[in-house]
Simulated assay, not measured.
Amino acid sequence: MRTANDGRGEEPWEDPTTAPSPDDEATRVFSRETLTPASGTGAADDTREFSRDPDGEATRPFRRGEPPEPVPTGTARTGESTRAADAQGAPGGAAFTRRFVRGRPPGRGQALRPTAPDPPEEDLPPAPEPEPLDARPEPPSRRPREPRESRGPRRGRRRFRLRWLVTLLLLIALALPFGTWGWVWYTARQDDRVPSDAIVVLGASQYNGVPSPVYEARLRHAQVLYLEGVAPVIVTVGGKLPDDNFTEAASGRNWLIEVGVPGDQIIAVEEGRDTLQSIDAVSEVFEEHSWDTAILVSDPWHSLRSAQMAADYGIDAGTSPSRSGPAVIERSTQLWYISRETAALWYYWIFKDSSDLQVNAA
């Protein structure tokens, strides 16, 4: 039977003649040369002779069950004989035999792992010599981080967007005046004649109670609207200069009465030296009579600005400009008035004030 392993590869075995084991196939006595029977012995079954060296200096007879003879110093290259001698102290007096196997049998469920032989020392590359500390290169200094390649296109895109934004703003700044000019021209060509609460005639120059040609053209158009039934009331508006004897509103009311409009259907608002002041005074009359809608009568190019001011005072105003008079006769005068009203409209939008042009009625 097997006993505990001593950790060095030797294991105690029983006599192979009495207790055969399946591991005996891997156990054999070997010698560096061919085994030869020992001379001078009669027991060929228990005595063998082996040689470790080809010269035979370490050849000795041995028997199973007997302690091995001491080996002279220097003849054995390994501690195998010492291990055999240590086996004498094994419990039960069992003899220990060196077991030599080509490979340790694997355990259950495991395959034999072949061990790769160690490469010869001649094939191994020589170990590199360590470099002296002075010869080692110094670590490179930390360089500033370079900007990424993507930052360039981003900056380019930002500059491109900023350039387009500035260009767009410039185009809008240039287009707004032209757009306003076109808006003034378009409104001048409109003629609203929807039923309203009152017809408002914006004042113009008068000469000692006689309306100027521009103002007379407005009053005549208001008379036509009244006769058509657009509104039951006509409101004339306008103050006077310090040396005048009549106001614009009073001179206009007198003219309408002379042409047949009933006096009780005319309201003269004798206030206002410009369009903004006139609309402010008219808004009080509308509030007093609870009126909401109106038709504004003025020159064609003045229609848009007067409608904007009336809307700011809460009056829902349409425009019906006069088509006669000095303001619409000549082409050059029309272009001048459209440009003038465009600038005056922007002036009102920015400063909320009026900038009227005095019309020469001569």
Rank of each mutant, 00 (worst) to 15 (best):
M1E: 10
R2D: 02
E14G: 13
E14T: 12
E14P: 15
D15F: 09
D15R: 14
D15T: 11
T17R: 15
D23K: 14
E25N: 12
A26V: 11
A26S: 10
A26W: 12
T27V: 12
T34I: 12
T36K: 10
P37Q: 06
A38I: 10
A38Q: 09
G40F: 09
T41R: 10
A43W: 07
T47F: 02
E49H: 11
D55S: 15
G56L: 09
E57K: 15
P61Q: 01
F62A: 08
P68M: 00
G79E: 07
T82M: 08
A84M: 09
P91N: 02
G93R: 11
F96H: 14
F100P: 03
F100S: 03
V101M: 13
G107Q: 04
Q110A: 11
L112E: 03
P120H: 05
A127W: 00
P128Q: 12
P128M: 11
E131C: 08
P132Q: 04
P132E: 04
L133T: 13
E138S: 12
E146F: 13
E149C: 05
R155F: 14
R158N: 09
R159L: 14
R163Y: 08
V166C: 03
V166A: 14
T167W: 06
T180G: 07
W183C: 06
R189G: 06
P195T: 01
P195M: 00
D197A: 05
V201E: 00
Y207C: 04
N208Q: 08
S212F: 01
Y215S: 03
A217E: 02
R218P: 07
L219D: 06
H221K: 11
A231H: 03
A231P: 08
V235H: 01
V235G: 03
G238A: 07
L241K: 13
P242A: 07
N245E: 09
N245T: 08
R253V: 04
R253H: 12
V259S: 07
G263Y: 03
D264V: 13
A268I: 04
E271S: 14
G272D: 10
S278N: 15
I279N: 00
D280L: 13
V282D: 02
E284V: 13
E288H: 11
W291C: 04
D292A: 10
D292F: 04
S298E: 02
S298P: 07
D299R: 02
H302M: 05
L304S: 02
A311K: 12
D316Q: 09
A317W: 01
A317H: 01
T319R: 12
P321R: 11
P321L: 03
P326L: 04
P326D: 00
P326A: 02
V328L: 00
Q334H: 06
R340T: 05
W349F: 12
I350F: 15
I350K: 10
D356S: 13
N360E: 02
N360S: 03
